[in-house]
Design a protein around this nucleic acid. Structure first.
Lengths: 248, 248
DNA sequence: CGAAATCTTGAGTATAATCAAAAACGGTGG
DNA sequence: CCACCGTTTTTGATTATACTCAAGATTTCG
């Protein structure tokens, strides 16, 4: 009697297992969590600032982002979301959302009721700790973004962001041959970096000219990982990947 | 048979009680946590990036900050820390620290062993949830800082930061008569805002000229709270204070 | 009182923003 | 398959916010 969503949890389980080995019991409990799966188009809000959600969303595939808006309508993307992420897990303990989540590409999304998650956390304390840990890593990423936006400029800022994305995608098995799919527009990069679209375009042009990156449609190739890391002053410690290969 | 640190926990308890009412049992469990209390001078690192701490630090009094350094020695302060905060609570689940914590003024600090905290969380699930929640609010503050540094400029950026500090201090009872003690130098504001010291000085000069703030040594007075909020485009939702008075 | 830290001010510069418009791309429908 | 539309990318010219460098004033504290 298996849950129909059994295999949908693969990416989440892959993420959690980078920390510790799940027991069969814990893995099964996860795989049997009921969720409502939806297929969303690109540029769709999944949740909005001010919402009081009663469920959290697990990204099963595709790219999304967490963002906030100023009262003047300027958007700041505060993190990118990939498969296996639960971008609004914090709503489990914070009633009102202080940010929105939107798809960047078509996304497969699973909605898990809070009561189901609470129940899981009560029964499996190690899973509760694992979820807590995931939110702590999110916080570590936000800290690094404050640093990136506050202290780094031009190509360094851009390169750092690309390094983070590559390492996270690699950890999820989404990088092959120094190449990954990155359906993020220059305007979205701009909103993430605190630049204008024009400036992002010029920075990327310079990086391509120097052979740091190769862009073909939504495919990004990094010919020389070490050099990109150096330009981006990138140290993956803050991503807290126990599996050191992924970070290298 | 009371713990000698009983009253030291007042600020932490005050913070936690903004969420839900603690039972006598829970309050007592907190008050009996053993900790090692130390008095630190200003500008002392409490923990450093790369540390693998076996305890967390509770700020009992004074001001501190969480910061990160670029490889070129530029410092980004990613949050200010006041009484009742546990700035490295994340080390409970993340082995390696990805940031440092330093005092800004003389501070009274309590160190609580991780095993003690783990034990408390196991025995009192509601306290575990409360601690998790605290780390989620920290994350919300980081998100807002990304927004502040990425999208706001000049006086708006500065005003937003001051608004946050005032609301948090007020919630802890540290604001009287529109005035609080704020032992933060212009150079430290600069590191928090991604400005230079020179620029902070000019922005503050402008804000004083407009009567937005009054500075007398380390005392900050805000004659017109509504106007400062407006200039800073400040909405306290992200601080997740249930006690709405504190936010107003 | 004197040294160190912090704050203040001025002059010149640079990174990135703004404004504007053209070129390239991607998807859709005839 | 191609024409057409909206979106995204690209480029140019000008401007502004904030940085750099430098030095003087003020405050703090031993």
């Amino acid at each position: 009697m298996h849950s129909p969503f059994r295999h949908e949890y693969n990416s989440l389980i892959r993420k959690l297992e980078s920390i510790f080995t799940l027991t069969d019991d814990e893995r099964q409990a996860l795989q049997n969590l009921p969720m409502q799966v939806a297929m969303l188009k690109d540029n769709q809000d999944i949740v909005r600032e001010g919402d009081r959600p009663s469920r959290s969303c697990l990204i099963l595939s595709g790219f999304a982002c967490v963002y906030k808006m100023t009262i003047h309508g300027k958007r700041q993307i505060v993190s990118f979301v990939i498969a296996g992420d639960i971008p609004d897990l914090q709503s489990l303990h914070l009633k009102v959302l202080d940010n929105s989540v939107s798809t960047l590409s078509p996304c497969r999304v699973g909605f898990i009721p809070h009561e189901v998650l609470h129940d899981l956390c009560t029964r499996y304390p190690r899973l509760a700790a694992a979820f807590w840990r995931e939110t702590l890593i999110d916080a570590a990423i936000f800290r690094e973004w404050v640093m990136n936006v506050g202290q780094r400029e031009g190509a360094t800022r851009m390169a750092h962001l690309l390094c983070e994305l590559l390492v996270r995608l690699k950890a999820m098995g989404l990088v092959e041959d120094h190449t990954c799919d990155l359906p993020i527009t220059q305007s979205e990069f701009a909103d993430a970096l605190g630049f204008t679209t024009v400036h992002v375009n010029r920075v990327l042009k310079e990086m391509r000219a120097e052979g740091l990156i190769v862009i073909d449609g939504t495919r990004l190739t990094v010919p020389d990982w070490e050099r990109l890391k150096q330009v981006g002053e990138f140290d993956p410690t803050y991503l807290h990947l126990e599996n050191k290969q992924a970070a290298a």
